[in-house]
Design a protein around this nucleic acid. Structure first.
Lengths: 155, 155
DNA sequence: ACTTTATTGTTCAATGTTGAACATTAGCGG
DNA sequence: CCGCTAATGTTCAACATTGAACAATAAAGT
């Protein structure tokens, strides 16, 4: 009926992106298993990594970086605080926000978790030469930038 | 304390994969918005696309292809059946399984949805040359294969 | 033929994620 | 100083996804 419309899987870009999605989903599953020993899941890892790099972030800032809603942070962070991984301290200059930081235990766990994540990634990409990985990064950063623009423009 | 351990974001492969994850998450969000007019979400789209290509699949086969659990299909498919998008018919040779197929309405919706998805992807990757997209696909298929092997070997 | 093992689809409780409504606080324009 | 708007974090109901337990059926072993 629509012979004029080429089937999507004939478009190289379409095929490529399907592969990206699949790989991502699989990586998520493998990473989830690999982190099980530390009793955390990918969302916790993302939080730990970002607090490791950027001390004193706000919950809102963190949510934006992780591309999730504020409410998600309001669920996860108190739970991680109770577990002794992070601290949430009020800011005297802006009493709306909570400044986030890792405890010693959280920092130590973050290092272990990043180690695991790095191992999984290195293992999985070990057959892909470094230069290709850099091209990959370029493409993906360009894609992300383009999509962020699209989201922003859409309001 | 651990100056001997290079920070993860110094590893090219690590950085690359972080970018992949971000791009994927963003694409998911943009696609979700783009599909809202058709009143479906990415999981429904995945189902429609696969049934469009492979008529007569089993729920189990579909679940495996989409990398989700069987129970997920048991939730989504009856709902899509009620909506008149798909049909689930028993197989006389194996009375355990249900063979899946698109209705006319489902086929039509699948075409519209694939059109939308293709547009989003083409738009987003429009600045990336075709050859690079093909390299991208190669890398991602290799990654997926490696991860599937890892999952399979782990049991 | 009969028992055992595997596979398929369903159900359900547990968990994770989201968006909207809300209270609190900042910042701004008068 | 006083309203008004915007931003932050919280709560909650809605929804999605999962894994385990289950019933029905098939396949294999004896």
């Amino acid at each position: 009926m629509n012979k004029n419309q080429a089937l999507p899987w004939d478009h190289p870009r379409f095929r490529s992106w399907i592969a990206v999605g699949r790989a991502c989903q699989l990586m998520q599953q493998v990473l989830t298993r690999a982190l099980a020993d530390l009793d955390i899941k990918p969302p916790h890892l993302d939080i730990l990594v970002n607090l490791y790099r950027f001390e004193g972030m706000t919950q809102q800032e963190l949510a934006r970086k992780l591309l999730v809603g504020r409410s998600n942070m309001s669920m996860l962070l108190p739970q991680m605080e109770k577990r002794g991984l992070i601290a949430r301290s009020g800011d005297s200059r802006d009493r709306r926000v909570l400044r986030l930081s890792l405890t010693e235990e959280g920092r130590s766990l973050a290092e272990k978790a990043m180690q695991i994540q790095t191992e999984v990634i290195e293992r999985t990409l070990s057959h892909t030469p470094i230069e290709r990985c850099q091209e990959l990064a370029e493409i993906m950063e360009s894609v992300a930038a383009s999509l962020i623009r699209e989201i922003r423009d859409e309001e």
